Computed example of a mutant assay.
Amino acid sequence: MLHAFFLAWLGVVAAQASPGPNMFAVAETALGRGRGRALLVVSGIASGTLVWALLTALGLGALFAAVPAFLVLLKFVGGLYLLYIGVRGLIGAARGLDPRLLARAAPLSAFAAWRRGFLVVMTNPKAALMWIAIATFLFGSGLGNGHVLAFGPVVAVSALVIYGGYGLLFSTPLATRAYNRFWRWIGAAFGAAFSGLGLTLLTSGLRDLRP
């Protein structure tokens, strides 16, 4: 059991450390809203991880396999959400809306920061596919639903460490000074990244709808 857990965990750590919606959400929040709010986004991501583990243990993977339309729907929901974040960032950069001024005018509440991380991970089809792969691997190693459920806290802890590290990195004085100088370009880059991810998911969903 420990061998299977370790191998699955290594794959998850590699996925978490690579650039993607989760990392972008943490980095954007750290630069524009500060370390505290970024770490709350991280806690939302970790919470979403626990939910994915629970859903997978309850048979979500089998549901996606039996009814592929559910995964297609998730691609559209996730794609639209990421595209919304991206377009909003691009518009702000184009209009010269400094996120620091917006943050003072409309502070991001603790719950809103947590919700941002939670929604990003829960609407990401890659998270669903990752958990299906984890379940398949663990089940294939002779483990059961309880083991898949127990794997959730392991992944949540690594999410806290990895994304928390990103939150700390992007809220350092050096990163803050760079953001203060180039915030418009950085905002445009994040907007383009989120928009690109969203369009990729929407395109994938449209391809899945083709007969």
Rank of each mutant, 00 (worst) to 15 (best):
W183A: 00
R33F: 15
A159G: 08
G198W: 11
A103P: 09
P211E: 03
G86Q: 02
G78I: 04
R35P: 11
R33V: 13
R33T: 10
S141C: 14
P68H: 13
L149V: 00
P68Q: 01
A62H: 12
L58C: 11
P153A: 01
I132G: 02
G89S: 11
L82K: 03
F139C: 00
A159H: 03
R177S: 15
G117D: 11
P99Y: 14
V51N: 05
P21I: 02
A15G: 05
G86A: 01
F139N: 06
K126H: 12
F182N: 13
G48T: 02
V26N: 00
V155M: 09
A189M: 06
L199K: 00
G191W: 07
A4W: 09
K126S: 14
A69F: 13
A106L: 13
K126M: 13
T123H: 05
G142R: 01
F194K: 04
A128H: 05
R207A: 07
L83W: 11
G34S: 04
A133L: 13
L138N: 06
F111P: 02
T29F: 04
G78A: 08
A53R: 05
L83E: 07
A62I: 03
D98G: 14
N145R: 13
L108T: 15
A127V: 07
G20H: 03
G32H: 12
Y81Q: 10
F151C: 00
S141A: 15
G142C: 01
V87K: 03
L138T: 01
A14Q: 07
G167L: 00
P173Y: 12
A8S: 14
G32S: 15
F137G: 04
R115E: 14
T176N: 13
R177E: 15
A62W: 11
F6H: 03
F5W: 08
V157L: 15
A188F: 10
R184A: 15
L202E: 12
G92I: 02
N145V: 07
G34D: 08
L7P: 01
W183C: 03
P173L: 07
T49P: 04
L71W: 06
F76L: 15
V87E: 09
L102G: 11
F182S: 13
L2T: 09
A159Q: 02
F76T: 05
A17G: 10
F139V: 07
L199D: 10
L82C: 04
